[in-house]
Structure formats: C-alpha cells, structure tokens
Write a protein that binds this DNA or RNA. Structure first.
Lengths: 202, 202
DNA sequence: AGATCGCCGTGACATTTGTCATGAGTAGTG
DNA sequence: CACTACTCATGACAAATGTCACGGCGATCT
C-alpha cells in the first residue's frame, strides 16, 4: 500500500530534492508540494495525502501553525514536522499542534523514511535524544507577554519602538526585557533573544 | 559524457536529497558527498569530480573558503556555490574565491542542472537578478577591522568582551562599532550586525 | 614629499539600557 | 476568601552604549 505524501518547504530546490529522495522508496508517492504554510490545507483537501511533511520556517503561516490547522480540519492526514533546527520548544509546540513525527534535516535518509511510515500508521516518530532534551529544557520560562516583548526585540529595535509597537510604556518594556534576561541568564536583551530562539521559545 | 559531482552540505537529509535529485539526470553522477568544509579538498583529490557543489554554511571551513582552497589546489575541479541565502556579498566573495556558479536553494531544479552543466564546461552560471543586486549594493563599505569587530559583536557580546577577544581597547571597539553603524545606517550595533549579515558582509 | 586612508588610542559627553523597589488591577486556584 | 501569578505602570539609580573631537603611526598613491 503506497503512502501519499504532501511536502511543504519554502525552498524550491530542497522541495524537489526531497521529493526525488522520497520517490526512491517504492511505497511512497509525493502527491503535492507547496512552498507556503497557508497553502497546506488547500493542497491537503485537494490531494488527500496520508502524511504531510512540513518545514517550520515558511512564509504565510509557519509549519507549526499549519500543523495545528491541518490536524483539526483534515483529520485523515497525519502530520510530521521536518525542520533544520532541533529546538526543544519546536518539538513541544509540534506535539501540541498534533504532529506525530519530528525529524531534523540533519538526520539520515533512512530515519526520514522510517518516520514517514510510522506516522502513516498513526505512531509517533521522534528522535529520542531530542525528546529527552525537550523534557529537561523544553518548557519556556517566559510568560506570554515576556515572549511578545522579546520577540519584538529581535531585529535590534529600541525600547521606544517596541513600546510603540505593543502599546506599552517604555518602562514596562524594560521590565519585561529585564525579566526575560533574568530567566534566560542572558546579560543583555540580544543574548536573551538568541537563547530564546535556539530553544524555540519565540 | 557524464559529469562527476562532489556535494558538500552539512545537513545529511538535504545532502541525500540533492544527490537523489541530481542522479535523476542521465549525465550526472554524484561521486562524493561530504558534510564539512574541511573535508572537501581531500574528497576532491580522491574522487576527481568535475564540479564541486558547495553549501556556504558548513562546520570546519565555510563553503567560500573551501572554494578558494579547491580552485587553487585541485584545478581540474570547477566550483559552484549552492546556498540558502542570495546575499550580494556572498556572490562577490564566491567569485573572488574562483567559483563559476552560484545557485540559491530557492531556485527551481532545472536551474541547478543547467548551472552544473555550464560550470562543467567552464562557463559562469549566476542568476542575473542577483548579479545585478551585487553590482549595486554588493561592495561592503566596511574596512577589514570594522568587519572583524562587527563579526565579533554578533552573539550579543559586550564591548569589553570584544575588546578582550581582539586585543583592542574598549574605546577603539566602540569607535569601530560607531563607524559600522554609521555606514550601515543602523541605530545600534545589533541592527548593524543584522544588516551586515543579510548583505553577506560578515 | 605631501596627501590620503586605515588602524589604534584617549577623553568627555549625552543617551540608552538594565536593575530595583513599589504598587494597582485582574484572573485563577486551593 | 486568601494566595499567587501575570499585566502594566512609575521613578530613581548605575552601568553600558553611542557620538564626537583629537592625535599618532604606518602604508600607499600621485
């Protein structure tokens, strides 16, 4: 029985290459490929895939959000996340979104094939090492608002700009940033951003 | 006549997938794959490829540096860069390193195949739009030292740390950062880092 | 030889950032 | 209900950051 696959990745070449790789397996068939998160659901409705393989970094809608929509709206399609970064917070959010599989792009090809088959059967497929890391350091210490402020501080904005953007006072923004820095153990806001990013908290 | 290809990319899955994609072409043969920049030359010596397809972001030695070594030491092997980011500075540095081809991972598969064939014949293969962008905004306004300081400021280091690392006084570091900020039009060092990164200047 | 440019440094200054104490309002929990 | 946690705010203070003016040194170009 062949497994019908939907592939979502924003990089054209990677998309084609992964399709070629998957098609090498006799029981796999790539029935749809999309480049944007907000095209996933429509494509899934049209092509009835068994498994959707979603990258996280995508324009329109990120893979985690797309996974959440997909699992709730197209229940016949199981979801696996395929991403560059094995960040604990990503795995947690992927599970919360209803994804069964989680594979990093650094994994060997057999592991991807294995994960797809497991997910198609409704089983979970997660790298044990990453799962362990997620259990220990995976839960974000940040409150929702701290997360917002930190996310808004990403591209080197000043306090005033962040305050404007979030309709807060400058002092409040600095307090939140200070809290976030304390919780992440960073010595300035930018280090805090980096840490939060590598953990998948923002 | 088949074209022998060496493939260098740090992500295992992407490497395998690209190999699968390239093997679909009758005249391509992937003769070696490596995951680190510092393994490129050795692999090229052992497997005599016609074309080396190098990612830029790699551990050990980045693809641009590997390209430079390769073109000087294994002259029978032409070089093409295959990277996620179409940054003007990257293209410029790739050309300086002796690469003939430059393909972004967002390009369609045919473009990659076309580029490989051109490069194998000793021709250049560069996306015209990117080439134009490089001509206008490609040259870095930063002096070598400003570049060093800015690169060292990346991960949220303080002035004192940068000064220590580069054996400079704190004042000098701040002056260089100030210059870099003025030249990039940034309002703080972290914005300057971001701008320099997206342009491939660091 | 003089001009120019990059490199490295100092010192002074205004601004921004990070820390801390404090408090009011709101929501959820035992 | 008391307790706790989150949100938002203010004000004051120390430290870090960014700006500016200035000077000496060496290399390069004309």
């Amino acid at each position: 029985m062949t497994i019908r696959i939907l592939l979502a990745d924003d990089q054209h070449l990677v998309r084609s290459a992964l399709a070629a790789l998957l098609e090498l397996e006799d029981d796999f068939q790539v029935v749809a490929t999309v480049s944007r998160g907000d095209e996933v659901v429509e494509a899934a409705r049209a092509s009835h895939p068994d498994v959707a393989l979603l990258d996280i970094e995508m324009p329109g809608l990120d893979g985690l959000a797309a996974a959440a929509v997909l699992t709730s709206q197209v229940s016949s399609c199981r979801v696996a996340i395929l991403t560059t970064f094995g960040r604990p917070g990503y795995l947690r959010r992927a599970m919360d979104a209803g994804a069964l599989g989680f594979v990093v792009k650094d994994a060997p090809a057999e592991q991807l094939a294995d994960a797809v088959r497991r997910v198609a059967r409704g089983e979970h497929a997660v790298d044990p090492a990453l799962a362990a890391a997620t259990l220990t350091g995976g839960t974000s210490p940040l409150t929702p608002r701290e997360r917002d402020v930190l996310a808004s501080a990403r591209s080197g904005s000043t306090v005033a700009e962040i305050a404007d953007r979030l309709y807060l006072s400058a002092g409040t923004v600095r307090n939140y940033l200070s809290n976030a820095m304390a919780k992440t153990g960073a010595r300035n806001r930018h280090e805090a951003v980096r840490i939060a990013e590598t953990n998948g908290w923002i």
